[in-house]
């Protein structure tokens, strides 16, 4: 996993609640067996008309959102299917952080495993960012170390993140390698509760 420390980037907003993972990456693209290359299918049904022409009404197709690396959306982002293809697609498209008032549990976890930072902010802060994001050059800076989001106009908020996950993200560590350190505990547990047949 690529470490996440500080990121400054352009902000795009999609002012919708309950954006489900079926919208983020529709099912027809889940048949691939790779982890890469999902970006071009991100928000496919919203983004394209008849599967090819960009839909000018869709937020990410607006010229001011070109090159955005931070996505802001409303409540319960990433609900529905557990498909990790959703964070893969967001990341492959170029997003490095998602800001919303709340996230679905499985999606939130999946983001953390991939170095895509999900940030929960209060509803009114998200509303402010959604308004600001309509400006072509609006940027935010995110510092994971001090858990801070800020812009150049004086907006500044802190956010919560689990300290264990934060460490993993900052270091870009492979969690499986880390778990192998605890192998003796796993072996001990198995001996007691779950012996090999």
């Amino acid at each position: 996993m690529k470490p996440f420390t500080v990121h400054k980037g352009k902000v795009a907003g999609i002012d919708r609640a309950n954006i489900d993972t079926d919208q983020i990456i529709p099912k027809q693209f889940l048949k691939r067996i790779e982890r890469t290359g999902f970006g071009k299918f991100l928000f496919y049904d919203w983004r394209y008309i008849d599967g090819e022409k960009p839909n000018p009404d869709f937020e990410l197709n607006r010229p001011e959102n070109e090159g955005a690396t931070i996505l802001v959306a409303n409540e319960n982002f990433g609900c529905g299917s557990s498909r990790e293809h959703a964070p893969w697609a967001l990341q492959d498209y170029g997003f490095q952080a998602i800001i919303a008032p709340s996230f679905a549990d499985i999606f939130y976890n999946n983001c953390l495993k991939n170095g895509l930072l999900p940030i929960r902010l209060a509803k009114q802060d998200v509303e402010y960012l959604l308004r600001e994001s309509t400006k072509a050059d609006y940027e935010l800076t995110i510092s994971l170390e001090d858990q801070r989001v800020y812009d150049d106009n004086g907006f500044e908020r802190t956010f919560d993140i689990d300290p264990y996950r934060k460490q993993l993200l900052l270091k870009g560590w492979d969690e499986i390698d880390l778990t192998f350190v605890y192998e003796p505990y796993i072996a001990e547990y198995e001996k007691k509760h779950c012996p090999l047949p």
């Binding site: 498909r83 990790e84 976890n109 969690e175 499986i176």
Partner: peptide, 23 residues
């Protein structure tokens, strides 16, 4: 019983465990 993403699938295949906060 709960759903997991592909990274967690890999983690369970390799270690038969998951790091989880008690909900």
């Amino acid at each position: 019983a709960f759903g997991i993403g592909t990274s967690e699938v890999e983690h369970v295949l390799a270690t038969q465990t998951l790091w989880q906060h008690k909900p």
